[in-house]
């Protein structure tokens, strides 16, 4: 009981300090993706997808990289020198048990042009 009380007081103290013990997250801000007219596109260009995620636990600790750079890098894993075009970007959120654990992902779907 004393241990639980101590933990509760610690969490309360932590929450008084801005409500977040530690946060180190990357979020997407801007991305001007290419259209088929901007690159040398071809109907046979492969379709690729990539995602990048950040997480938050117990409303206190947040970490991860959900930015555009990580998501596009994941999409280009099979063709690092290619250029993405016709890019669709979605956001996926998974939240469990009243948000005690939440994961937010940036999902990039696109075609890859050689240049």
């Amino acid at each position: 009981m004393e241990t639980m009380r101590s933990i509760f007081l610690c969490l309360l103290a932590a929450s008084s300090l801005g409500g977040c013990l530690y946060a180190n997250v990357r979020a997407p801000r801007a991305y001007r993706s290419a259209t088929p007219a901007d690159v040398k596109s071809d109907p046979s260009d492969p379709l690729v997808a990539g995602e990048s995620c950040s997480r938050v636990v117990l409303y206190l600790v947040a970490w991860g990289d959900a930015g555009y750079a990580a998501a596009t890098k994941a999409a280009l894993a099979s063709a690092p020198e290619g250029v993405l075009y016709d890019v669709r970007v979605d956001q996926k959120v998974n939240s469990y048990v009243l948000g005690l654990y939440a994961k937010t992902c940036t999902i990039v779907s696109a075609r890859v042009a050689k240049r």
């Binding site: 977040c20 530690y22 180190n24 001007r32 930015g67």
Partner: peptide
């Protein structure tokens, strides 16, 4: 082919750093 992300760092809500990457 520019991608811009924002990095947020917060320690106990006391020290905060926000970066444009």
């Amino acid at each position: 082919d520019v991608k811009v992300d924002t990095r947020h760092l917060s320690v106990l809500g006391i020290y905060r750093k926000q970066c444009v990457e």
